[in-house]
Design a protein around this nucleic acid. Structure first.
Length: 168
DNA sequence: CGAATTTGACCAGCGC
DNA sequence: GCGCTGGTCAAATTCG
């Protein structure tokens, strides 16, 4: 049908078919101040954010379709496990949904988002755990190279409160 | 009118 | 070699 852009096809080919995905992952406390900068969820107060950072070593660490030669491409992947009723976590950036697919391990479909920016091809995928629909797993891929468009630092404040006793 | 979103189809990698 | 899952794109639609 319509010819596809070869340029776009270059980034195609990323396959992360991990059998036991979203299953048992190492959850560690990670400094999320640099990643989250805003949230508009009403349940922010009870939002328990657990960050699980794991190198792409566990999953496919391949990104660009490089010809023979370099076969090991580092793919920064950060999975955030956030407990919230809303799956849309506003991190301060603009995201454009480019696809939605249902995974076998989850009853709920996985949403694929992409950062709307000229040259900033940061991808983000949001998936809700079928076991606990309150748990939303947000996986970031890539790094932003541009300032935030929104000046919402609410989430950062929230994170601070979560780690520190909220003042009465 | 423009941008973002939606849904379906297609593709690629891996498993069997 | 075929089938399955996961991932992405593309066109159409909708919202602002």
């Amino acid at each position: 049908m319509a010819p596809m852009q070869n340029n776009q096809k270059l980034i195609l080919g990323s396959s992360s078919s991990s059998a036991a995905s979203t299953s048992s992952l190492n959850i560690e406390n990670f400094n999320s101040q640099n990643f989250f900068h805003g949230a508009n969820n009403k349940d922010k107060m009870e939002a328990e954010t657990r960050i699980q950072h794991h190198e792409a070593n566990n999953i496919s660490e391949r990104g660009e379709k490089v010809t023979k030669g370099d076969k090991k491409i580092k793919r920064h992947r950060f999975a955030f496990q956030t407990r919230s009723h809303v799956d849309i976590l506003d991190d301060g950036y603009r995201w454009r949904k480019y696809g939605q697919k249902a995974v076998k391990n989850s009853k709920f479909p996985r949403s694929y988002y992409r950062c709307t920016h000229k040259g900033c091809n940061v991808k983000k995928q949001i998936q809700r755990l079928s076991k606990d629909e309150e748990i939303v797993v947000t996986t970031y891929e890539g790094m932003h190279s541009h300032p935030l468009e929104k000046t919402t630092d609410s989430f950062e404040q929230i994170l601070q409160q979560l780690q520190t006793p909220a003042p009465s």
